[in-house]
Design a protein around this nucleic acid. Structure first.
Length: 347
DNA sequence: AACTCGGGGCG
DNA sequence: CGCCCAGAGTT
């Protein structure tokens, strides 16, 4: 392991923590910290930027102020308040977690015990226990991977960020300030978010620049080395079908791995229609979206209910929804926007 | 170990 | 457009 940094660990920790005390952003889970706020924010922040999370978290804390309120809510209500954030399994797991915690005499205090709970992995268990209980567990997220590979100029070609996190865990642990693990962990992530940017990092204001091999070489952007991902182009055709004030939607099965119980505009396959059903017609809207490794172009075609093949609307998953019901049900983020937009542009 | 899950920010 | 974001669960 490239660890020329290790002998200077104490100095590194002191500079990092000193910087953090002065420069940390004021964030809702830092102001009046509580276990509940820490847990909810960590779930929302999985693979999601701070800026995106802020409005969701504020609303969430109003509606579900503590574990008891969350545990008492229905799953439907919980997922509805996650609408637009994505990775909806996180919401279901957070809900399950709340129900598991209120059934215990007190929340666990060890990383191992938290790891057993739903939605909690290596990162989140370390984050929660270090921040809330002072447990000496080092977090390794995307920020930490970037900082550690730069500190040591580690040019290893990692398959993906998960492989990098695993490989860098020992170094993260060696650098952990065991007297202040929560602030140390947050300081590492704060540094990654506000100074050690993926591109054009602000090395001139970096508190740990003296310990950074990549900065010395003048090429911090070379790290980390991650394999490029292949983006696949995909085309989806969807229906816009209005009838007697209602809108035809597709509801994904509750046991599906993706978008379980969520609604979207029906795709051709949901309606049992062939690929060429709308051949020659003009879509009322064309939308682009990205989903992990897919770049999807969605074409939406208006069709009268009477022109659908008989029995189409009775197919499994298809539902007629009134505009009043539409507000209460959960749509995926993009579909919520598109539907709102298309309704507003109706004559 | 490799895949999958949604969505948005930003260069 | 492509990469990344306070990752975890499943296969």
């Amino acid at each position: 392991m490239p660890d020329s940094l290790i002998p200077q660990t104490t100095e590194f920790q002191r500079e990092l923590l000193g910087w953090y005390r002065h420069h940390r952003r004021s964030l809702p889970w830092r102001d009046a910290p509580s276990l509940y706020k820490t847990v909810v924010s960590e779930f929302m922040l999985q693979q999601t930027q701070v800026k995106t999370v802020l409005p969701y978290l504020a609303r969430w804390l109003e509606i579900f102020p503590d574990f008891a309120a969350l545990a008492a809510a229905s799953e439907e209500q919980v997922v509805k308040n996650w609408e637009g954030l994505g990775y909806y399994t996180r919401a279901r797991n957070l809900h399950k977690l709340a129900r598991a915690l209120v059934a215990l005499p007190s929340p666990p205090r060890t990383r191992e015990a938290w790891l057993e709970l739903p939605g909690i992995g290596p990162y989140t268990s370390a984050a929660i226990t270090s921040i809330s209980f002072g447990t000496p567990a080092a977090v390794v997220d995307g920020n930490v991977v970037r900082i550690l590979t730069r500190l040591t100029a580690d040019g290893t070609a990692f398959r993906d960020s998960a492989a990098a996190s695993k490989a860098l865990a020992p170094l993260a642990d060696a650098l952990l300030n065991r007297a202040e693990p929560g602030d140390h962990n947050q300081a590492m992530m704060e540094l990654g978010a506000t100074v050690c940017h993926r591109r054009t990092p602000l090395c001139t204001v970096c508190p740990v620049r003296p310990y950074c091999a990549a900065s010395r070489r003048g090429e911090p952007e070379l790290y980390p080395r991650l394999a490029p991902k292949l983006i696949e182009q995909l085309a989806v055709t969807r229906l816009w079908c209005r009838h007697q004030g209602k809108l035809l939607l597709h509801r994904t099965a509750g046991d599906a791995r993706r978008l379980a119980n969520l609604h979207e505009l029906p795709a051709l396959e949901h309606a049992g229609l062939g690929e060429s059903f709308f051949a020659g017609d003009t879509p009322i809207a064309t939308k682009k979206r990205g989903i992990t490794r897919f770049a999807i172009t969605e074409s939406i075609y208006a069709i009268q209910a009477a022109k659908l093949p008989r029995g189409t609307a009775d197919r499994p998953g298809l539902v007629w929804v009134t505009l009043t019901e539409l507000e209460a049900i959960t749509l995926s983020g993009p579909h919520r926007r598109w539907v709102t937009e298309l309704l507003a542009s109706e004559p």
